[in-house]
């Protein structure tokens, strides 16, 4: 029975997840579809935080890649007129990948608060730079035209639906790849780093390389998340790289835990829903209601929502 709910085969699980998401998408009202698109794209960034969290590292600057992805695609859309979401995503991947390849090896030597602060400062440097650049709209940012899909120019609900479908495909594929990575030797080593870094080194692996690779994987997820958010919102501004934005991703990661990948996207959706409704029903105290919700979740599920999803899996492993 658990086999059925949690198929061991990753491609099968992905196909199932995609099918469910597509069917759900067809019946969702417009506002919920948009909320889901946003939650999933932010979930991608949070997934990056989760990747690093498995090795015991907290990146407080994942907004850096979120912002790079958003601006890379947004600027290309404005300057060259590219509006194809596939091409934009590719640009986002390349841009965030390049930056991560530069900083990854450097950051990989730091742990704990130093890693958190360095990632944070990198994203704040980008924030400061963008805020100063009036060519790029300064703090007000710039608008991004509606995305197209391989020559298809949808409008109205079709546009929202197409972007939702694209987002679902992206998260399922990337989620599948990350799951494969987690289950691979490299992924298990990342987990071991969390427990005892020294031992991992003695086993003959370079902890630095492992962390750098994980960092790049996380950055690319962030970049894609930024591209989709920018395209969905239709506007990018330096706020994408601000530390509160990064803090939100860390929160989603904590909310979800690092046991389950679907939990990350679920956590992101839950956060969006709570925020959206508390903002409407408690316009003056929505931050407080959001805070209370977060407190309750942390108290009830200290290991995150993912611990709920993976609980039934654990006895199997012991066999």
């Amino acid at each position: 029975m658990t086999e059925f709910i949690f198929p061991r085969s990753i491609p099968l699980a992905c196909a199932l997840a995609l099918a469910v998401l597509v069917v759900v998408g067809l019946i969702l009202p417009d506002w919920a579809m948009f909320l889901a698109t946003m939650a999933f794209s932010k979930g991608m960034v949070a997934l990056g935080v989760v990747c690093l969290m498995r090795s015991g590292l907290v990146s407080f600057g994942q907004g850096l890649y979120y912002c790079i992805g958003a601006y890379a695609s947004g600027l290309m859309a404005t300057w060259i007129g590219i509006s194809d979401i596939f091409l934009m995503s590719l640009l986002g991947i390349i841009a965030s990948g390049i930056v991560a390849v530069i900083f990854g090896p450097l950051l990989a030597t730091y742990r704990g608060i130093f890693f958190a602060m360095l990632t944070l400062s990198l994203s704040m440097i980008l924030y400061g730079t963008l805020s100063k650049m009036s060519v790029l709209g300064g703090t007000d940012g710039l608008n991004v035209s509606a995305p197209t899909f391989l020559g298809y120019h949808p409008e109205g609900r079709a546009l929202g639906l197409s972007l939702y479908m694209f987002t679902c495909a992206v998260i399922v594929v990337y989620g599948g790849l990350v799951r494969t990575l987690f289950d691979s030797e490299r992924g298990l080593i990342s987990l071991a780093i969390r427990d005892n870094e020294l031992r991992v080194e003695y086993l003959g692996t370079s902890v630095r390389t492992e962390i750098a690779v994980t960092y790049i994987v996380a950055a690319i997820a962030g970049g894609i998340g930024g591209v989709i958010s920018g395209a969905a919102i239709g506007h990018v501004d330096p706020e994408y790289a601000y530390w509160t934005t990064s803090g939100e991703f860390v929160f989603v990661a904590i909310l979800s835990g690092y046991f389950s990948i679907p939990a990350v996207f679920l956590g992101s959706v839950v956060l969006e829903i709570v925020r959206s409704f508390s903002n409407l029903y408690f316009p003056n105290t929505w931050q407080m209601s959001l805070g209370i919700f977060l407190l309750i979740v942390i108290l009830l599920f200290p290991k995150g929502l993912g611990s709920l999803l993976s609980r039934s899996k654990k006895p199997e492993k012991k066999q």
């Binding site: 417009d30 506002w31 925020r275 959206s276």
Partner: peptide
């Protein structure tokens, strides 16, 4: 921020 406002705007309208 603007991102949140776009979401809230859609919620108000839709």
């Amino acid at each position: 921020g603007a991102t949140k406002q776009v979401q809230e705007f859609r919620n108000l309208v839709q």
